[in-house]
């Protein structure tokens, strides 16, 4: 009977690892049940870390699982008259304290760069010979239950008179660093784009900044991942990553809408229009 239980417990690491491998390689029936395709530069590092941690975990998981299986297989009471009598082994204990400690400290240091890049070091631009933080191009205003996106107008600044406002649709260019400023109108929300490996809670009264650089043209969902009320699951936004050219085109179109039709005979009109367009 012990052998049966041994096999049962052995199945845990075997099936566990097998399903993980199948999911990671996209084998049926687990295709798609893994990290979604990544579209951001920083996301690659995050994915790399995730895989690394999974490999380390897998080794420990299989190792400990095998020990459990082996122990159950080997030390059945029907096959042994007497258990060994020992209560500790100092050398062994030191080894299995030091080695995990080294691994954990390695992990801790290894990921710091990635964290700093994604969350601490904001992209910069140089302006008037000075290096300054890149200003946000869109103000993301979360509310129950939707996303407002306030695009900076021709002046390049958000929260000014020429802002453009659109709900639940975010269009951004690929290949450049995009900085978003996040704010909320009411409760805590969280801005989550799985395919960009971007997530940031938005706390009332605080401004949060996130940044990323898209790698390819794609369309993806924006989800809220902090409980915000009955319609939490309805907070779906759509993010379109488009080429810089298409982005400019789209922006021009939006800005043209901001300008009402004007009297074509008025001599001042063309000049004014020019002023409005990027």
């Amino acid at each position: 009977m012990n052998r049966f239980w041994s096999i049962l417990f052995c199945l845990v690491p075997i099936l566990g690892t097998a399903t993980f491998v199948m999911a990671a390689w996209g084998l049926p029936p687990f295709q798609g049940a893994w990290l979604p395709k990544n579209y951001s530069v920083a996301g690659e590092t995050i994915d790399h870390l995730f895989y690394l941690l999974n490999w380390i975990s897998a080794v420990i998981f299989i190792g400990t699982g095998a020990v459990i299986g082996w122990v159950l297989w080997k030390y059945d009471h029907r096959r042994r008259d007497q258990a060994s009598y020992f209560s500790h082994n100092t050398q062994l204990e030191i080894v299995w304290t030091i080695i995990p400690a080294i691994i954990l400290i390695f992990i801790a240091f290894y990921q710091m760069n990635s964290w700093a890049e994604t969350k601490m070091i904001r992209p910069t631009i140089s302006q008037n010979g000075q290096t300054i933080n890149k200003p946000p191009m869109v103000l993301v205003m979360a509310k129950r239950f939707g996303w407002e996106f306030h695009y900076a107008g021709p002046d390049g600044l958000i929260e000014t008179q020429d802002d453009d406002y659109i709900e639940n649709e975010l269009v951004l260019p690929v290949g450049t660093d995009v900085v978003l400023q996040l704010e909320t109108r009411d409760v805590i929300h969280s801005f989550f784009v799985p395919q960009l490996r971007v997530k940031q809670d938005i706390v009332p009264g605080m401004k949060q900044f996130i940044w990323f650089r898209g790698t390819d043209i794609a369309e993806m969902d924006i989800a809220c991942t902090e409980l915000c009320g009955w319609g939490h699951y309805t907070m779906k936004g759509r993010l379109r990553l488009v080429s810089q050219k298409d982005y400019n085109l789209w922006l021009t179109e939006r800005r043209a809408m901001q300008t009402p039709a004007m009297d074509p005979d008025d001599p001042e009109t063309p000049q004014v229009l020019e002023e409005r367009l990027p």
Binding site: V12, L53, I68, I107, K119, E226
Partner: peptide, 27 residues
């Protein structure tokens, strides 16, 4: 069973303890 399951729970805890990875899997 407790030991076996605790190993899984503990290992996934390490994955989440890494802040960059936690960005993706938090909540």
């Amino acid at each position: 069973g407790f030991v076996s399951m605790f190993i899984i729970g503990g290992l996934s805890g390490i994955v989440m303890a890494a802040p960059p990875v936690d960005i993706q899997i938090h909540d």
